[in-house]
Amino acid sequence: MVKITVAGLSIWYDEQTAIKNLSLQVSEKEILGIIGPSNSGKTSFLRTLNRLNELTSNCKTEGEIQLDGKSIFKEIDLLSLRKLVGIVFALPLPLPLSIYDNIAYGPRLRGEKNKSKLDGIVEKSLKASYLFDEVKDRLNTSAFNLSGGQQQRLCISRTLANEPEIILYDEPCSGLDPISTAKVEEAMRDLKKNYTQILVTNNTKQAARVADRTAFFLMGELVEIGDTTKMFTSPSDKRTDDYIAGRFG
């Protein structure tokens, strides 16, 4: 079943084009990997899905994106959209709050004050990213005391606490060591049961490990999208082959 439909999307920063006339679909509960060299428009695309790039003042967008058949620009309220479409950033970005308050941030925004409900949400979200056992005794300490890998899983938990339907990852492991990366990837595979996930990554091997389907972006254009195994074994475009083989990028 189609979750997201992108049709004729273009993005500019001032006069510079970041995405040119992009169209693609994302199915429900799949992990879509997006690979491509830097400045290929991956991140711009990702940040458009929850309209975060509108915070960048010189950014201009054209085209249509639909979530469950509804336009994210016209039919879904901006704040609800951001609740529905969570994002995990490249660097672990805890808010300057305690671990508990980081997770409870989203629910509290929507007026949740019930202490036992919040406790439940915090525990459930931390368990989903395999962080609960490591931090359960210090939930009220600053999130900055966690290691980088723990912080990144905290950010995943924080996104989950918002009960999104879609989770976006913007190179989530770029700052992490291999063990932390493995833990994050494990969490992502586990989350497949309930969430649609889009993973932007510079690391083609990560896409190969995690993604069901993979899209290859180059200079703002979608070169190829398809089944990950097929893409990595017999890509239909020469450029994809070159990139995966590491001949450029």
Binding site: G86, F89, L93, L95, G106, L109, R158, T159, N162
Partner: peptide
């Protein structure tokens, strides 16, 4: 700036 971005991304006004 990043703190603001995180907050917005979680649906904060």
């Amino acid at each position: 700036m990043a703190f603001r971005e995180v907050s917005f991304s979680l649906g904060a006004s």
